[in-house]
Design a binder for these strands. Structure first.
Lengths: 193, 193
DNA sequence: CTTATTTGTTAACTTAAGTGAACGAATCTA
DNA sequence: TAGATTCGTTCACTTAAGTTAACAAATAAG
């Protein structure tokens, strides 16, 4: 399982065996059961997540119902807003599949970054990459209709549509579950006709 | 005008007079006329922008019409996607008011960051802050209706509604200009009734 | 200053999403 | 495994956004 992480890191920096061992000795790999809530609304947390296997999602509870805003799957990283802002979290994070996560906390990161400065460089690169990606995703969302968003997702993350409950997928697409059902039926009709 | 920048920077790090002078000597302050196109679709650019005064917007041209995705006003920073990805830009950036911008390029930044390591630290902090902010904005967009988005904007960036053309504002809200007009009329009706 | 062009609004009509309810299928859970 | 809950879909109806067109107001161009 560590190999997955090191393969990922190797895209940014190269690590010596010593450095790899140092990371392993941090003991940050965690097996998390489906359904586990990693972060709750109102909570203050210093934990960041990196998904090695499985899927976690972020969601708000507004007027009593859940609004799913993101899914994180293999090789996705998530630093919750509350960690950077140091304010209570506005949203929940839950594990929707049995997963293997890398869970780090801010204090530990500072220590590692001091010990291995190139780690710091990697994180900086990674963060600006994520920012750019997030903006593009936002742009795509803004400039397309629910139907286009669904078709887009079918292209870019076809696995999500299979592995994620439809009602969660619906709010991720910014619509109601009934609208997603209808929209899918509409697309099927078009393909036939 | 430099003071605006240094006030902003002082929120992250403190600068000596020498360091301030070094920044000024980079000669990165630019006056830009309304209507100027800073970046075009298909272009490769290494320039990043920081708005000291005025307003710039990013927009795509899809099926022949403009889709505005963001407005950057005083103290907002923008590193276009093409700069980080090193691929041709998918969108345009234009100046919608006479503005004063700080325009830097990647090469210059590297030089400055080597000379003043604390600058590098600042950028890292700033970038992860922006990422967090961008995610929250995306979440808000996803979880709300066009009308809610408009009301939200009225709260958070009331100036935008005044200074920005309505048809650009409409696509920023993910709707057509006609829908924005209607939506505003609807809100006025409600306030009366 | 006059003419074009762009912009914002309104209106009538079409299309798609929201809402509330119903119902089988899948999935917990005891 | 029996009963309860959750989930996905369908339907009828409501509401709001998309579309096309028209027109006045503001802005730009000559």
């Amino acid at each position: 399982m560590e190999d997955l992480l090191f393969d990922f890191i190797s895209k940014y920096i190269s690590l010596s065996e010593d450095e790899k061992n140092a990371i392993i000795s941090l003991d940050i790999f965690r097996s998390v059961k489906k359904g586990t809530i990693l972060l709750q609304e109102g909570q203050n947390s210093k934990e960041s997540y990196f998904v090695l296997k499985g899927c976690i999602r972020t969601y708000y509870v507004l007027d009593g119902d859940e609004k799913t805003t993101a899914f994180y799957t293999e090789m996705d990283a998530l630093t919750p807003h509350c960690v950077t802002s140091k304010t209570p979290s506005q949203y929940y994070i839950s594990c929707i599949e049995d997963s293997i996560l890398l869970i780090s906390n801010t204090d530990m990161e500072e220590e590692v970054n001091t010990k291995f400065p190139k780690f710091d460089v990697m994180c900086r690169t990674f963060s600006s990459e994520l920012l750019a990606k997030n903006k593009v995703d936002f742009d795509e969302f803004k400039t397309s209709s629910p139907e286009q968003r669904y078709l887009n997702l079918l292209q870019k993350r076809p696995d999500l549509i299979q592995r994620v409950p439809q009602h969660q997928l619906a709010s991720y697409l910014g619509i109601k579950p009934q609208s997603l059902s209808r929209l899918k039926a509409r697309i099927l009709e078009k393909d036939k006709g």
